[in-house]
Design a protein around this nucleic acid. Structure first.
Lengths: 155, 155
DNA sequence: GACATTGGTCAGTGTATCTGACTAATTTAG
DNA sequence: CTAAATTAGTCAGATACACTGACCAATGTC
């Protein structure tokens, strides 16, 4: 899962670089989601799998698209989808528009996991808002959305 | 490398959850640092290794501490430090205070890489500040620093 | 219809991560 | 001050994940 390379050397006396400052709460959110899912019985999937699953659109998404969005190779994406499929989180159906392709869709088990994840996200966001104040929290979201304009490779 | 699990399902019509919003620029920063290091000839190390190396303090740090801070097992940390050591980025010296322990320190090649990374961080931060405006950029840093208070496991 | 492109798989390799078991040095208790 | 518990680190083995290269089949282009 994840990495956090940003600046080299732990200065640790304040003034962390922004990259690391972004990573810390991100990681905390991820850990919370994972813990909650595991506790709810969804303990047989991994961060990498979730990363891919998260990208599946409501009508299904092609493997190649998933790979591109998750910034991994299609081989890796295929590997991860295999796992997800075997665990019942997703399914592959033929793409009616293109006989080469198949659409990866959320399956029953996946659909069951999503509300669990969503509720944890809401819970954590509420905690953050309580600590920062509503205004600051809203500003944070807005600033990050703006930042996305120059940092998101496909959006 | 790193993950980004935060919310499940690509809603994609705005309102991304904050976890993912944090991850996007983090990832962009990381990619930039990596690309710059590779171009400068430091192409033989990985994100995971950098994650550990980043935590080494000025007087060296014990393996166990590195593991804890990077949130990995000490075995994994040992594995990564082995690689870093063979590539000349770090060295292990006996800890004078404790004969069980050894201190991992930045070696010559590591010391050479740090300024390269630092300059990219500065560059990227400047780009972000240009896009967001100075005030917003300062607010972002401040808010993230506050958020760290409740999301950083050891700090 | 030939050629290039696109969607996906197969095979092979290296990296990262974990758990469990172990040695050695240090610290704590009685 | 010895005995027990803790701490620092390693060894061994297993699994997951990520990449490259090679390939096949369907689609699109000229």
């Amino acid at each position: 899962m994840s990495g956090e390379v940003a600046g080299e050397q732990a200065t640790d006396g304040q003034e962390l670089n922004v990259g690391l400052l972004l990573f810390i709460p991100y990681r905390a959110m991820e850990d919370r989601i994972f813990a909650a899912l595991a506790e709810a019985g969804f303990d047989d999937f991994t961060v990498a799998q979730a990363r891919v699953m998260q990208r599946i659109g409501p009508d299904g998404t092609r493997l190649t698209d998933l790979a591109e969005q998750a910034q991994i190779t299609k081989q890796t994406a295929g590997f991860l989808v295999d796992r997800l499929e075997r665990a019942g989180y997703v399914e592959r159906v033929p793409d009616p528009r293109d006989r080469r392709a198949r659409l990866v869709k959320i399956a029953a088990r996946g659909a069951a996991a999503i509300p669990v994840a969503e509720s944890v996200v809401a819970e954590v966001e509420a905690e953050w808002a309580a600590h920062l104040g509503k205004r600051r929290m809203a500003q944070l979201r807005e600033t990050l959305t703006r930042l996305r304009e120059i940092t998101d490779p496909y959006a």
